[in-house]
Simulated assay, not measured.
Amino acid sequence: MALLETLTADMKTAMRAKDKETLSVVRMLKAAVSNEQIKLGHDLTADEELAVLSREMKQRVEELESYKAGERTELALEVEKQIAVVKQYMPAQMSEAEVIATVKETIEQVGATTKADLGKVMGALMPKVKGKADGKLVNATVQSLLK
């Protein structure tokens, strides 16, 4: 089932359950996916759907960090709930060990040896981990493994 259909079904379920928090997040996700579909002029591929979800997740994570930095605990709790709903639609996240293994494998494939090869490694690596791992973790892992 396409993401848009899943979101529509989940929106109906949230309405029936009178779950306003989930409903608002699902509506927002549905709007983001619909807007992207209109912008591109065709039904979204799985990668394009993942890109929209990743963008929405990233916005919420940044929002959460700023609320925590500003000691706005009530707003931070709301955003954490939103993140939990968005995570339901994201693919399973890679563990740190899986990220390290993927990075090592990619470094060998590319033949990278120094930090100067960071761009080559990241270019080959990001399509493999897109949406499945945090970009900051991936970047930090690559930098730690390259000398």
Rank of each mutant, 00 (worst) to 15 (best):
M1K: 12
A2D: 07
A2T: 14
D10V: 02
D10C: 01
T13F: 11
T13E: 07
A14C: 02
R16Q: 06
R16Y: 13
A17I: 12
K18G: 00
K18R: 04
K20Y: 08
K20G: 04
V26S: 10
V26T: 11
R27Y: 12
R27I: 08
M28F: 03
K30Y: 10
A31M: 06
A32E: 01
A32P: 00
Q37V: 14
I38D: 05
G41I: 11
G41H: 07
T45W: 02
A46P: 01
D47K: 05
E48K: 04
L50T: 02
L50R: 09
A51T: 09
S54F: 07
R55L: 13
K58Y: 07
R60S: 05
V61I: 09
L64C: 11
E65Q: 07
S66H: 03
S66N: 06
Y67I: 13
K68H: 08
A69L: 12
E71L: 05
E71G: 05
T73W: 01
E74I: 15
L75P: 15
A76C: 10
E78Y: 00
V79F: 02
K81I: 09
I83N: 03
I83W: 01
Q88P: 00
Q88Y: 02
M90T: 00
P91R: 12
Q93N: 04
Q93I: 01
M94Y: 15
E96D: 08
E98T: 09
I100R: 01
T102L: 02
K104I: 00
E105G: 02
Q109G: 05
A112G: 15
T114A: 11
L118V: 10
L118T: 14
K120V: 00
V121G: 10
M122D: 09
G123S: 07
G123V: 00
A124W: 12
L125N: 04
M126F: 14
M126R: 13
P127G: 06
K128E: 04
G131Q: 12
G131K: 12
K132C: 00
K136Q: 05
L137G: 02
L137V: 12
V138F: 15
T141C: 10
T141S: 03
S144W: 03
S144V: 14
S144A: 14
L145K: 04
L146G: 07
